[in-house]
Design a protein around this nucleic acid. Structure first.
Length: 403
RNA sequence: GGAGGGGUGGCCGAGCGGUCAAAGGCAGCAGACUGUAAAUCUGCCGACGUCAGUCUACGUUGGUUCGAAUCCAACCCCCUCCA
């Protein structure tokens, strides 16, 4: 059992996969002011729910009095992390990276309190020190401490090689720079702990080793389990794509619905991982049976949405859900399409995005999946005379409003 | 460098001159059953189009043919074995 509040919390909520040195970390976390970081690459304009596991780690650290550092990989994104990939991904140019970075950083303000205090969160960009690295001095100062033998044994590299997939020298350097990041953060900000997903274990350990050799001993590492859903899929991938954290990539309504539609078997686990609800409250919600489980799912959706999008957004989404599902109405938060009445059903279906193409709209009509104001519509020629709720299936709804 | 094998729809994977918008599986969507769950069964699943039909697709570019994912040539990429 751990002594520190931080590790106790993480353990109780299911955040821990591996620790490099449990006792040392427990001791470090028990003392005030532990500084820890997680790195995020800027490969997309938004992080997604898959990243939530580590974001929550930073949040919990801050709640326990530690200082979280968000490292945006403006520098490492130029290289591309080969971990878990069979092929190199497209290289992003500087403009894309800068735009992604600017967009990503906004979401952290919801989860962390930034500031200069002892537990104020900090955001840094590794381009700050990586861009200016001089090759030869870097090789002489750090390269000699890095063992190629060991790097080759690293999963991210080994698996690639075993599968006879090409691995460029550029990608090979990713772990070198990540290791260097850790050392740099230790020096600049007294950062002792790097956290990350379980796939980052190798990279984290590299950093710790490098630190030991260049005068930053006693660095620590912690990884979270890869979060999968009960049916075995990686969390956060839906048909529509990733579940983005940024509101301009995914509406509050859809974000809330993502959580509301959680598989029964995942509800307790997700409540612990992704909300701040107290554990005894979670235990109570988790014990609910049958249709009562929906109460737990609403609680999960509310809490998760409140964290990421704010309490108002969560309340709005819940009200929309109640109006839409409970009362058969058309809640305010539903997606809207502006149309000229009367509008053909097929046009309405494509305009609202309920159907991706006119052909699909036609098929769904034939399947009896389309309803307007709760009435099934099967005639592809039907014209909808006035504003109202258009539904495809029981879950997907949209509002038609006058243009 | 030499000898073979291969590149097919979101993924896996059949097809090897017409009946191929292309078997099957997975994923996805919908219907039934439910609790906006799971499991199960059923249907759908390139685009446009009033079920006719048109267009775009089987690595790329040309060619043979009435007709090509299927044959030929060149090119690009990948794999296996040999050096």
């Amino acid at each position: 059992m751990y002594r520190s509040e931080f590790l106790q919390t993480l353990a109780a909520r299911g955040h821990i996969h591996q620790l490099t040195d449990a006792e040392a970390l427990d001791a470090a976390a028990a003392a005030p002011g532990l500084v820890a970081y997680v790195g995020y690459d800027c490969t997309a304009p938004s992080l997604h729910v898959g990243n939530l596991a580590t974001i929550m780690l930073l949040r919990r650290l801050q709640q326990c009095g530690g200082r979280p550092i968000v490292l945006l990989g403006g520098g490492t994104t130029k290289i591309g992390d080969p971990s878990g990939k069979d092929s190199a991904r497209r290289l992003l140019d500087d403009t894309e990276i800068a735009a992604n970075k600017a967009s990503i950083r906004t979401v952290f303000e919801r989860f962390l309190a930034f500031g200069d205090g002892p537990s104020g969160a900090l955001m840094v960009d590794n381009a700050e020190w990586l861009d200016g690295l001089a090759y030869i001095p870097f090789l002489r100062d750090y390269g000699r401490h890095l063992s190629v033998n060991r790097m080759l044994a690293q999963d991210s590299v080994r698996l690639r090689l075993e599968r006879e997939q090409p691995l460029s020298f550029l990608e090979f350097n990713y772990m070198v720079l990540q290791a260097y990041d850790f050392v740099e953060l230790a020096r600049r900000h007294g950062c002792r702990l790097q956290m990350g997903g379980s796939d980052q274990w190798g990279n984290i350990v590299q950093g710790i080793d490098l630190g030991r050799r260049v005068g930053c001993p006693d660095l620590l590492g912690l990884t979270t389990p890869l979060i999968t859903t009960a049916d075995g899929a990686k969390m956060g991938k839906t048909a529509a794509g990733a579940v983005w954290l940024n509101p301009d990539q995914l509406s509050d309504w859809d974000y809330w619905q993502f959580w509301r539609n959680t598989d029964d078997r995942d509800v307790g686990r997700f409540l612990r991982l992704f909300t701040d609800l107290p554990l005894d409250e979670i235990a109570r919600l988790e014990a609910l049976e049958g249709a009562e489980r929906n109460v737990a799912k609403v609680a999960l959706a509310n809490a998760a949405t409140a964290l990421c999008r704010g309490p108002e957004a969560a309340a709005r989404a819940e009200a929309t859900a109640r109006a839409t599902f409970g009362e058969g109405g058309a809640g305010e938060g539903l997606p809207e399409a502006r149309v000229v009445f009367p509008v053909g059903v097929i046009d309405a279906l494509t305009a609202t995005g309920l159907a991706a193409s006119r052909g699909e709209a036609r098929r769904k009509l034939a399947e009896g999946a389309v309803r307007f104001e709760g009435q099934v519509v099967t005639d592809a020629e039907a014209r909808l005379p006035h504003p109202g709720r258009l539904s495809l299936g029981r879950k997907r709804h949209a509002r038609l409003v006058p243009a």
